[in-house]
């Protein structure tokens, strides 16, 4: 019968469908799932006791503290900058706008190692500003301020990149309406602009934070790897791994992996919330 042979031409047969799904899932498992499992298995290979000890050991604790400190400075700094830059870019016309956008993208374009190196060349002992800094007893490179600077640089674009298309899509009519109703600039920002971008902003902050805590390359160059002083969590993982202290390395690595999972969780939550409230997270694409 003709009706039995009818098939939707855009749908493959069952066998091919299963094969394609299988390949996709296998690939995901091999490259994402398996390593994630390996991290936790390795970290716990010598039992919970050693795992716990590896985490509360002073150097590890100091690495966690430093990582949190760096993120606590870098994320708010880029939050303020990101909102200011995207507000200017999305709502106003000015000369040099495209140049500003290019500059915001710069950290995405250069290798993090190069970003770190730039700071060493600028602020290091042999760098351009090195002698001046030394004369005033200011130490940036191989110290915490250098790590913060490098992290800010690397995470520079995350929030701004998230907000620019969103704010451009929203236009500036609502702000104009607010001003014509007598609102001041601050009132307009707090009551109209900020509520409109809250989900996109949160999304950007989450991504920025994940990167700030996980950054390795740039931080590695400026850190100097002084244990207990200038090692962040990713650096601590590398150092202990190179010393064949696998449990310690994987224990801290598992913390970073957990952070990633939590980040993904919050990210999905934000996406779900934004969808539910009917506010698009990203600008119209």
């Amino acid at each position: 019968m003709a009706t039995q042979q009818r098939r939707i031409s855009t749908r493959e047969s069952k066998g091919i469908t299963l094969l394609l799904i299988g390949i996709a899932l296998g690939y995901l498992f091999l490259f994402l799932g398996l390593p994630l499992i390996a991290v936790f298995v390795e970290a716990l290979s010598k039992g919970w006791d050693l795992y716990w000890q590896a985490l509360v050991e002073p150097d590890a604790l100091s690495a966690v503290r430093l990582t949190l400190l760096v993120a606590a400075i870098a994320v708010p700094a880029n939050l303020v900058f990101g909102i200011a830059a995207s507000w200017a870019i999305a709502k106003f016309e000015f000369k040099g706008k495209s140049l500003l956008i290019t500059f915001i993208d710069l950290p995405f374009a250069v290798s993090p190692v190069v970003s770190g190196l730039i700071y060493v060349l600028l602020f290091g002992a042999q760098g351009w500003l090195g002698p001046w800094l030394q004369a005033h007893d200011i130490k940036l490179i191989f110290a915490v301020p250098g790590i913060v600077l490098a992290t800010i640089f690397v995470t520079f674009p995350f929030i701004a990149r998230e907000l620019i298309p969103l704010m451009q899509a929203q236009g500036k009519e609502e702000e104009e309406a607010a001003v014509s109703l007598g609102a001041t600039g601050w009132q307009t920002f707090w009551r109209v602009t900020l509520p409109n971008i809250k989900w996109g902003l949160l999304y950007g902050v989450i991504l920025c934070n994940a990167r700030a805590m996980g950054e390795f390359g740039a931080v590695s160059v400026v850190s100097g790897h002084i244990r207990g002083m200038t090692t962040t969590m990713p650096l601590h993982v590398e150092i202990t791994y190179n010393e064949y202290n696998f449990v310690a390395a994987f224990a801290v690595a598992s913390l970073l992996a957990l952070l990633a999972l939590v980040t993904l969780g919050i990210k999905s939550l934000v996406e779900w919330q934004a969808k539910r409230s009917g506010e698009p997270l990203h600008g119209a694409h």
């Binding site: 009519e173 104009e176 309406a177 014509s180 001041t184 509520p195 506010e279």
Partner: peptide
């Protein structure tokens, strides 16, 4: 005087209601 001080009501083509 800027828009805020002119005491002018403005109605936009696309309404510009505060969506939130």
């Amino acid at each position: 005087r800027d828009a805020r001080e002119r005491n002018v009501g403005f109605v936009f083509q696309h309404y510009a209601l505060f969506r939130h």
